[in-house]
Simulated scan of single mutants.
Amino acid sequence: MSAARPQLRGLLKSQLKRDFSIAAVLSVGAAVMWQAVVVLPRKRRYEAFLTNLDADKEFIRMREAGVFQSVKPGGEINDEAW
């Protein structure tokens, strides 16, 4: 009884088919996991933040803290910044 002969012709082609299909399945799985674990929770957090955001109140808070150069705390315009 003799051993089976090794596949010499088309070996690279057959291995590439298998490896490419494995890589495609793994990459799609990783993309779906990233979407479920990172993207969707981040979207929900942004949406919750933006529904509760009062932009005018935040501006006044930052103005009073002295964050802006063009507006002094209290609301007067800073001519020295220009």
Score class of each variant (00 low, 15 high):
E76S: 09
E76F: 01
L12I: 04
E58Y: 12
F59D: 11
E47T: 00
A30E: 05
L53K: 08
S2H: 07
A3Q: 06
K57F: 07
A31I: 03
R44T: 01
F20D: 10
G29R: 01
S21C: 08
A55F: 09
D19G: 04
Q35P: 00
K57Y: 08
F49D: 03
S27T: 02
M1N: 05
L50A: 07
R18A: 09
R45Y: 03
E80D: 15
I60G: 13
E47Q: 02
R61A: 15
A23Q: 09
R45E: 02
A3T: 07
R42E: 04
Q15H: 07
Y46H: 07
G66F: 06
R9C: 10
F68G: 08
S21V: 03
M62P: 03
R45N: 04
Q69N: 15
G29S: 09
W34T: 01
R18N: 13
F20H: 10
T51E: 14
V37T: 05
W82N: 10
A31Y: 05
E80K: 03
W34L: 01
V39T: 03
D54A: 04
F68Y: 14
Q7A: 11
F59R: 12
R9T: 11
A48W: 05
L53Y: 09
W34M: 01
D56N: 06
E47M: 00
E80M: 06
L26D: 11
E47S: 03
P41S: 09
N52P: 02
A3M: 07
R63P: 04
V37R: 02
G10Q: 05
L16C: 10
A65K: 13
D19V: 01
A23G: 03
G74L: 13
R42I: 00
I60H: 12
S70P: 05
F20E: 12
V38Y: 11
I60M: 12
A31F: 08
R42L: 02
M1W: 06
F68C: 12
